[in-house]
Design a binder for these strands. Structure first.
Lengths: 142, 142
DNA sequence: CAAATTAATGATACTCGGTATCAGGTATTT
DNA sequence: AAATACCTGATACCGAGTATCATTAATTTG
């Protein structure tokens, strides 16, 4: 599965370097959202630079391999995307655990049926949405 | 209406100082979301310090006079709250114009009826939500 | 396979939003 | 008017992220 992402890199004309391999490999180990700083702390002993980590995560995001997560703490968190599904960039319906940060995506878009009605009433031309539900996931909820 | 907010400050035991008056006054002039930096740029010639602007906006937010807006550009934007309504802190259903940044709040929470169902299916205990619709408002939509 | 070319790297300095500190100043209390 | 809070501006600082740039590594070309 790491191989799959390195393929994507090569296919798009990016070079498959040692730092990039290390970053992709590290990233694939996280189940929960992570920051660039965390990745850097794991890889700096191998000689991977901070700037490279930031650059590479940004690249992986642009390639839809990672999704960005706003955990409201002011800094970027990333997570492996559910990007193999039909619309990689349109995962706007999420449910986020406040304890562990895990994110699930809602299969059905509960808002879909309401959008037309809202557009009419608000006078807006609605183009997109971003729905985050917050709560506690089953394994954190004791 | 500025008087109303200065009242709120006094009522809660905060002092009504010249910098605070200037900030509240400036803030009340904005129709669109604004940043602390913008406020500071307007008031520094009057001798108001940067730290004071940040501190005061934070305070006004804590008093529910301002709402925070995440415009996805990495920095805080504020806007005068619709805080006189029943739940000042629970305005999680918004519609945001991508052209001018203006924000409207949806009176009815279209998600309310779906939450129980989502909770059951996802296994999460749902505590809150944050819904942003993006689009173009009527006056920007030509 | 070697040389030329192009992309990627790590170090560093820097930006930017925001916060902590702290001595001096200004409201309020007595 | 004096005491006591609180608030202020200046400054230094922090953390996330980016720009620069000389060096290095991957690819392309011969």
């Amino acid at each position: 599965m790491v191989a799959h992402w390195t393929e994507t890199l090569k296919d798009k004309g990016f070079r498959l370097t040692a730092p990039r391999k290390a970053i992709v490999d590290q990233v694939s180990r996280y189940a929960d959202p992570f920051t660039a700083e965390e990745v850097y702390q794991h890889l700096k002993k191998q000689g991977v630079g901070r700037a490279t980590v930031f650059r590479t995560l940004k690249l992986l995001h642009e390639l839809d391999i990672l999704v960005r997560v706003h955990l409201e703490e002011g800094c970027q968190h990333y997570q492996l995307g559910v990007a193999t599904s039909s619309h990689p960039e349109h995962h706007h319906d999420r449910i986020i655990c406040r304890m562990c940060g895990s994110i699930s995506y809602l299969d059905e878009c509960p808002m879909k049926k309401n959008v037309a009605d809202i557009a009419k009433r608000s006078g807006y031309r609605v183009q997109g949405r971003h729905l985050d539900l917050y709560g506690v996931c089953r394994s954190c909820d004791q």
